[in-house]
């Protein structure tokens, strides 16, 4: 065909670049959902259908809240980007399986409506919505939120099962079986029961290049370091057994939080240096809450407090442009 016809037809004009990579927000969110599947399945295996229902209620509540808010305020509906599904899943995974169903529903509404949509929707929330909702629930309904089922299914453990979580056990000076801790299911929130499953999801995200290992690794390492430091200062060196340290790393929300929540794009710093500072800060806060706090937990609080400091970290760790690494002399070429 001739070039004149080409000109008469519809020609697109736009600013360069004229090609784009295949990456998309939806694909990233889908990857996170896929990565959250192993811990979800582990939770359902441990606690039964009730865990599945809690997860479903949390996801449904988040998606529905976003949908209704956008309908009522006449905004474009964005639930298709799957970010609300991720929020719902993370919220659900951070709840005990025994909670009444209005808990995940209320949490979902709080996470999406107050923390996400009121601050401008996707990308604008200054805290992780799911964790903010969890902290809201923890403060408001402490008893419900810290009651874990008395019985749950395990794969091969022989030791007696207790209602207490690993962190609660070591807090009372008890011992846990290290091998069982690592490879079997243990009590806790729905998403916390299996170390192996959390790491599977984490490795999936690394392979898909959705996340880098920086924040999770620094966070876990600094938590251990600060816990050891505080216990030594407090004269409790005797407490620092391998069982204690393994429980600190693998029990409670640390691994789940480090792998899937601390490195949430929206609420973590931009630069590598910023991420390292942020992760050390999270480790410091987590260990303070765990060692000195009244609760044996602390990850959720640490992360949302860390989230609030991210804008400041971003500001002081902005990279210097290429070719301007050295501070310019006054009166130099500028």
């Amino acid at each position: 065909m001739s070039t004149e016809t080409a000109q008469a037809s519809r020609i697109h004009v736009s600013v360069s670049p004229h090609i784009r990579s295949s990456a998309s927000t939806t694909r990233i969110m889908l990857d996170v959902c896929i990565a959250l599947l192993p811990p979800s399945i582990a939770g359902i295996v441990a606690f039964g259908y009730r865990a599945a229902l809690v997860l479903v209620m949390a996801v449904a509540s988040c998606v529905l809240t976003e949908f209704l808010f956008e309908k009522i305020t006449r905004r474009p509906v964005t639930v298709g980007d799957l970010s609300a599904v991720v929020t719902g899943l993370i919220l659900g995974l951070n709840l005990p399986s025994t909670v009444p169903f209005w808990i995940p529903v209320l949490g979902g509404v709080f996470a999406i409506l107050i923390v996400k949509m009121f601050f401008g929707g996707l990308g604008q929330n200054f805290m992780n919505p799911a964790l903010a909702a969890r902290c809201f629930l923890l403060i408001s309904f402490a008893k419900i939120m810290t009651t874990f089922p008395a019985t749950f299914r395990v794969l091969f453990s022989t030791s007696a099962l207790t209602e207490a979580t690993p962190l609660a056990i070591i807090r009372e000076g008890g011992e846990i079986n290290v091998v069982e801790m690592l490879f079997d299911l243990h009590n806790g929130c729905i998403g916390e029961v299996s170390v192996v499953c959390i790491l599977l999801g984490f490795i999936y995200l690394l392979v898909r290049k959705v996340i880098t290992p920086l924040i999770p690794c620094v966070y876990v390492a600094s938590t251990v370091a600060f816990v050891v430091l505080f216990q030594l200062i407090g004269g409790n060196a005797a407490m620092l057994t391998s069982s204690y340290l393994v429980a600190q790393v693998c029990g409670g929300g640390l691994l789940l939080g480090a792998c899937f929540m601390a490195n949430d794009y929206v609420t973590s710093p931009m630069s590598a240096l910023g991420c390292a500072i942020y992760a050390v800060l999270l480790g410091l806060l987590t260990s303070i809450f765990r060692v000195f706090g009244t609760s044996s937990e602390g990850v959720s609080y640490a992360i949302i407090i860390g989230n609030c400091i991210v804008p400041l970290i971003d500001r002081v760790t902005l990279p210097r442009p290429f070719g301007r690494e050295k501070r310019e002399k006054k009166g130099g070429a500028a």
Binding site: M1, R10, H12
Partner: peptide
């Protein structure tokens, strides 16, 4: 020449 109408040139 062009084989089909280009959408972008």
């Amino acid at each position: 020449g062009f084989s089909v109408t280009p959408e972008k040139m």
